[in-house]
Design a protein around this nucleic acid. Structure first.
Lengths: 204, 204
DNA sequence: CAGATTACTTACCAGTCGGTTAGGGGGCGT
DNA sequence: ACGCCCCCTAACCGACTGGTAAGTAATCTG
């Protein structure tokens, strides 16, 4: 009774609607790309919706909030990296596992530039700031490598492996960041330098 | 003629107005603190004004735009760091200059937690992303240290000093970041580990 | 003591943000 | 053939952003 005049079409006449699964996948894809280009804060729901060819409200229909969508995008970008690094570490011997970790991680990020900014962003924005936790797997690999090499406990010659892992992690971040906005930079060569530094420290 | 009714007081009757110099200094101070706590994007003009006890418009009266204020805050936070590191490097011998650089930088950031996030933020937000440029002074110090030690050119044993400086810089960033949200963490001890790694790499 | 200057205030603006609401078109099962 | 449900749109919200316009009290200057 208030106002019920038939407004404009409620649906684009041209393209068919996608199934929920397909739409979710598409939206995650688009979101990863946009966050990669402009960061999370610089990516609005409206822009995501526009890039997907639907409206903002439709995006929120699938993912109740922007936060949920961004989280899904982060997760999607991360699983690829985790699987890649996991496989590389597993196929390397215990002694070379830390090197495999560093090299495969940098290599993956080089080959998936879209995911890189998203992951960096996820780490920077989210509560994943707890760096020591972030690099704990690397510290564990380093510990195992030293034992496999016959070296002593964690603090041999005043060396703290947790701290070393944090430093190496910082090196990885720096290499990836440099790669992001210096196209001419070769991240894998830098990663090999980093591995050389690590080896000199790990196996004195 | 349109509307000229005398509105409310144009000035807080209580506190006296500050001189331009004093107000600018206070605003920079407040801005550094707020950016340190919530980052640049998370710090609005209104919040800065509130913390300073004046209105948003008054802030813009002193610094024509938010950007100008933030730039001033960044500059203020940076000059202290640059002076401190410069002095430390100068008082160290050429051979120990890289170590002095790393240790004094981490030490300063530990002792000035307020400035830390601001500097990190300035690097992340601004166009100072060109990390290689950022750590170029360190690379130069490393080069000089190797020559003072009688070591060969930059690429001795496949070692690229620019890349090494980038990696060490990443380590510094990681240590500082860890210090920021892990109060129990000792950044100077970690910096000493980093220096040990660097020495092993620099003087083989 | 008059006038200009300094350091503000209130009020307002246009734009963007994430999120909500009401409804409607198209394909499906019956 | 019909009704229902899924996927979607248009329109709107309130909160917040940086920035502007106009006016005014206290202080300085002549």
């Amino acid at each position: 009774m208030a106002r019920e005049n038939p407004r404009s079409p409620a649906r684009k006449p041209g393209e068919p609607t996608l199934t929920e699964q397909a739409r979710r996948a598409q939206l995650i894809d688009v979101t990863v790309r946009l966050i990669a280009e402009n960061g999370n804060a610089g990516t609005s729901l409206a822009r995501i919706a526009e890039a997907a060819g639907i409206t903002k409200a439709a995006v929120l229909y699938h993912f109740g909030s922007k936060d949920a969508l961004v989280r899904a995008a982060h997760e999607s970008a991360l699983t690829g990296l985790v699987e890649h690094v996991g496989a590389a570490v597993e196929s390397a011997g215990a002694e070379r596992a830390p090197a495999a970790y560093v090299l495969s991680m940098v290599g993956y990020l080089r080959d998936h530039p879209g995911h890189t900014r998203v992951i960096v962003d996820a780490v920077a924005d989210g509560e994943d700031r707890r760096s020591s936790e972030r690099w704990r797997p690397l510290a564990d690999l380093m510990h195992a490598a030293r034992r496999a090499h016959g070296a002593g406990s964690e603090t041999d010659a005043g060396l703290d492996l947790r701290t070393t892992a944090l430093i190496v992690g910082g090196g990885i971040d720096a290499i990836v960041a440099e790669h992001l906005d210096h196209p001419g930079f070769d991240p894998l060569a830098a990663a090999e330098d980093l591995v050389a530094m690590l080896d000199r420290t790990l196996f004195p």
